[in-house]
C-alpha cells in the first residue's frame, strides 16, 4: 500500500506545531498502525530527519500507552487501541490525518506524545483500597454477588488510555473516572472508602482542568474497552449519595 500521511509535528511543549505531509510506500495490510509509523520513522532517520514521536508500550492492547487521533477518531476507525489497529482498515492511496489527544489537561510534550499524568493524580486521590497486605485472603471470605463481580470486571477493563478525553468535545474525564470509581465502589473490598473515593477523585478530576459532561456520548463510542456511557450516571449516583452522607 502507498499512503499519504499528514502528521502533527511539534518540537516541544512550548513550540507551535503544524501538520506535515509524508508519503510512505510498501505498507503491508497486515502491519499494525504503529508498525506503519515505524516504517515512516526508519525512512526519516535514514534521511537524517527527526522521527515522529508517539507513545506505545505493550503493543497488545492492554497497557493504555498508545494514543493518536486518526482521521478524527481516537484510536482510529475500529473499536480497539491504535496498536491493535491494522492497515487493512485503510485503502491503498488513502490520506490519513494523525493528531495527538487534544485537551488542556493533556498538554502536548512532543509531536503525538501528550502528558497524561493528570490521570495518575486522579488515581492517587482515591483509586485504591486499604487492604491488609501479606498473605492472600481466603477467596470465599468476602462473597461478591455475580452481577457486582461482572460490573467490577467490566469497569476494571479501563486501561487509562485517555481516548475518552480526546473524543469528548469538552475534554471531560468523566468516563475514565467513572470506570475507576465504579470498579472499586461495587466491591466489598472497596467499601471502606466508598464515599471519600468518589468525592476525592471527582474533585481531583475537576482540579486538573477537565471539562464537564454534556452526555454527548463520544467517549463511550471511542473507548477501546467498551466502558459504557451509563457508567457516568452510576458515578453521579455515587457522588450524590456520598455528598448527602458525608455532608461536605
Amino acid at each position: 500500500m502507498k499512503l499519504t500521511l499528514r502528521v502533527w509535528r511539534q518540537k516541544n511543549a512550548a513550540a507551535d506545531g503544524a501538520m506535515s505531509t509524508y508519503e510512505v510506500d510498501g505498507i503491508s495490510r497486515d502491519m499494525s498502525f504503529l508498525e506503519m509509523l515505524d516504517t515512516l520513522n526508519e525512512e526519516l532517520i535514514v534521511k537524517g530527519e527527526d522521527p515522529v514521536a508517539f507513545d506505545h508500550d505493550c503493543r497488545e492492547g492492554i497497557c493504555g500507552a498508545c494514543s493518536l487521533v486518526i482521521n478524527g477518531d481516537a484510536h482510529g476507525p475500529e473499536r480497539t487501541t491504535t496498536c491493535q489497529l491494522h492497515m487493512r482498515s485503510f485503502e491503498d492511496g488513502d490520506t490519513i490525518d494523525i493528531e495527538p489527544w487534544r485537551a488542556s489537561a493533556f498538554p502536548v510534550v512532543k509531536d503525538l506524545v501528550v502528558d497524561r499524568s493528570a490521570f495518575d493524580r486522579i488515581i492517587q486521590s482515591g483509586g485504591y483500597i486499604s487492604a491488609p497486605t501479606g498473605s492472600a485472603p481466603e477467596a470465599h471470605a468476602a462473597p461478591v454477588p455475580k452481577p457486582d463481580a461482572d460490573s467490577a470486571f467490566e469497569h476494571a477493563e479501563c486501561i487509562g488510555c485517555g481516548a475518552c478525553v480526546a473524543a469528548c468535545p469538552n475534554g471531560s474525564a468523566m468516563l475514565f473516572t467513572s470506570a475507576k470509581v465504579n470498579h472499586l465502589n461495587v466491591l466489598p473490598q472497596g467499601a471502606p472508602e466508598r464515599e471519600t473515593r468518589v468525592l476525592d477523585m471527582v474533585a481531583q478530576m475537576d482540579e486538573e482542568g477537565f471539562g464537564g459532561c454534556t452526555l454527548t456520548g463520544e467517549c463511550a463510542t471511542a473507548c477501546p474497552k467498551g466502558i459504557p456511557l451509563p457508567s457516568i450516571s452510576a458515578m453521579n449516583k455515587e457522588w450524590l449519595r456520598a455528598t448527602r452522607k458525608v455532608g461536605r
Binding site: E99, R102, A105, N170, G171, G209, G211
Partner: peptide, 11 residues
C-alpha cells in the same frame, strides 16, 4: 468545557 478543549482537531 470550552477552556478544557482549546484546540480542535484538524480532521
Amino acid at each position: 468545557d470550552i477552556r478544557a478543549r482549546p484546540t480542535s482537531y484538524v480532521h
